[in-house]
Design a protein around this nucleic acid. Sequence first.
DNA 1: CGCCCATTTGACAGCTTTCAAATCGCGTGG
DNA 2: CCACGCGATTTGAAAGCTGTCAAATGGGCG
Lengths: 244, 244
Amino acid sequence: MSASPLTPMIHKLERRARLDDRDRKAILALPHTLRLIETGAYIVREGDRAERSCLLSSGFAYRHKIVRTGDRQILSFHMRGDLVDLQNSLLRTADHSVQALTQVEATFMPREALKELARNYPAIAEAMWIDTLLDGAIFREWIANVGRRNARTRISHLLCEFAMRLEEAGLGERTSYLLPMTQEHIADATGLTSVHVNRSLMVLETDGLIKREKRFVSIPDWRKLQKAADFQTGYLHLDLEDAA
Amino acid sequence: MSASPLTPMIHKLERRARLDDRDRKAILALPHTLRLIETGAYIVREGDRAERSCLLSSGFAYRHKIVRTGDRQILSFHMRGDLVDLQNSLLRTADHSVQALTQVEATFMPREALKELARNYPAIAEAMWIDTLLDGAIFREWIANVGRRNARTRISHLLCEFAMRLEEAGLGERTSYLLPMTQEHIADATGLTSVHVNRSLMVLETDGLIKREKRFVSIPDWRKLQKAADFQTGYLHLDLEDAA
DNA sequence: CGCCCATTTGACAGCTTTCAAATCGCGTGG
DNA sequence: CCACGCGATTTGAAAGCTGTCAAATGGGCG
């Protein structure tokens, strides 16, 4: 059963709500297509009529919008097990794009099948709803991050959040991991320029808050960085009630 | 039936998904408490254990977070018919606060009752899920607004969005309306200072994009402001598929 | 070895903030 | 009816964080 590319979706949803065997079987029975996507390729384009949703089976992706000046704002980063565009199951047109940050294995599921699943399996519907709520919680934190924190804090915050989510997804440890994004991605996620991100990263390093080797980041003192980042984990809602 | 304070919730959800009589009756049967809340009072506080969710029956409210420096970031504004903290039905603790912008009539519903409702009425569950997705769509646009637009554009964008939502909620026309927030609220929503908001508003006025009289705003040329604001309505998903 | 993308560095400009202080609007009380 | 008080708006001058525009450096790969 762990052979199915849908298995990560079950794991993900089980962390959102309590599922039973019937639920799990229904998920595994979803029609789906596994596709390999090259670095930089689009998974969804803003304006697309959405006919399917996508589960990230491996690799990293990010969502973004382009504003009129041509500048890009990255809205979120995603990793294995993330449902990157659940909104496409219920909203008509995509309001932003999703792009592969690395090479990606993507599992596509028809929107109608997902809607049916939600209609017939309340526990799954609840899990997906919660997943959407968590998505929203992270967006809110990003608004605060970009709106009210200085460059140093913004970047540290991003590093903390990414570390935490990597660890929670079982993809590494939060005190030492490989960053899949370039400094330009970090800039577009934090509302800064890549030049300023570069300088800020160097300051974080000389201040001893992080160590870097290429894209590899290690964090000598997690609490210290967390403090510098104003990173409170509450918004990640790691305390989900185990499907009470 | 329009006597129930829950009626606006039915109207709201009916714009999200197709409901039948059974659904409507179930909503009206929700246990609820109507409360009058004074300007500035908190409806939800960050960190609260959430035991209920809140429907705005009249007045305006906003959600916000406070960062370590003490600065406030406003995350969204809400008006009659909005479910301001649906996340509290499914997430354990509030990750941000909700505060009354004006005097407010708030209808509170126990979280368990809402969860039950979602479990037993798939169409309602879908409508609430869609509501959450729309919430998220607006958050994403705000990230882009705060992250990648200059002061003038950010503020114009806020004015356009608020106008559009007022009109959609049947609370006014988008080209002339009363802003319930102070310039400081606008500043905290756009990631600026109130001083700069003040200056930017004056520029928008001398440029003829808006007219002001106290908090009253009128927009002589909607298309022109919309363009200056980089305001594309797509993210509001006004094209919901009428519950296909 | 050469190309290309990512990172780093420099100098300078500029949008926005900061910190006051003045003005305005308006409800309250004398 | 007018003074008072207080929050909101407006205005000024100066500082500063971050952006801009190049150009140099570094590293991986064909």
